[in-house]
């Protein structure tokens, strides 16, 4: 069995670092593993450097950093599923509270205001932020991540604006007007431009853009800009 010198161990560690592994814990795991392989499999007549370079490809398909990526993915995977579960649960709660609120409002029952506050708080402070986080994880392209996040952030500001308006709280007008204006005149054109470049289904992009623009435009028309 070969005994490695400190310089040789240092060389292997530097090779691991040079190949893109940045998590210190993983670097030392791989270092020990690599040293064990060398000590057990290298013959006295073998060249150390050639042997090391021949052993490295055993650890990966394309490059060593795959192990780090897989580690990060596995470590964060559990949170990802917890986030998705919470998002589904919140969507069910939001729908249930919204139906209850509508019934209370129609029949003029007490507690409608409280139900509406709960619905909007759940929607804008839990559901939409979770959707943004999941979209950031799911989408691979930076533009897609930015466009979706921007859209959902506008959704948060507009829904809070609606809550302020219905509860007769101050600054409701500014919140709603800014949300609706940015959505209609900035987000929709931005969505159309980015999606029509990347999506194969151009018809759906055009249709969605027109729909969003019309809804945004109608809401914008409701504002009395003179007051």
């Amino acid at each position: 069995m070969v005994k490695l010198t400190d310089e040789q161990v240092e060389y292997v560690l530097n090779e691991i670092k040079a190949r893109g592994v940045t998590i210190e814990d993983l670097q030392y795991n791989l270092l020990d593993h690599m040293c064990c392989i060398i000590e057990n499999e290298m013959r006295d007549e073998d060249d150390f450097y050639q042997f090391v370079n021949a052993v490295f490809p055993r650890f990966f398909n394309e490059n060593l950093v795959e192990i780090e990526k897989e580690t990060i993915l596995l470590v964060t995977f559990k949170n990802y599923y917890a986030m998705k579960k919470t998002m589904y649960l919140t969507s069910v709660l939001v729908t249930a509270f919204m139906i209850l609120f509508s019934l209370f409002k129609i029949f003029h029952l007490p507690g409608a205001g409280a139900l509406f506050v709960i619905t909007v708080v759940l929607f804008s402070s839990l559901f939409l932020p979770l959707v943004i986080l999941i979209k950031l994880k799911d989408e691979s392209k930076k533009t897609e991540k930015m466009v979706y996040s921007f859209g959902f952030l506008l959704g948060i500001s507009t829904s809070i604006g609606v809550l302020f308006k219905l509860m007769h709280w101050p600054y409701a007008g500014i919140l709603m007007l800014s949300g609706v204006s940015i959505f209609t005149f900035i987000y929709v054109p931005l969505y159309y431009i980015t999606q029509s470049r990347t999506t194969k289904d151009k018809y759906q992009t055009i249709l969605l853009s027109i729909l969003m623009f019309t809804v945004g435009g109608l809401m914008f028309a409701l504002f009395d800009l003179k007051h």
């Binding site: 398909n61 192990i67 897989e70 580690t71």
Partner: peptide, 8 residues
Amino acid sequence: TEGALYPL
């Protein structure tokens, strides 16, 4: 393989 073991 090492690529499967250490992430796990």
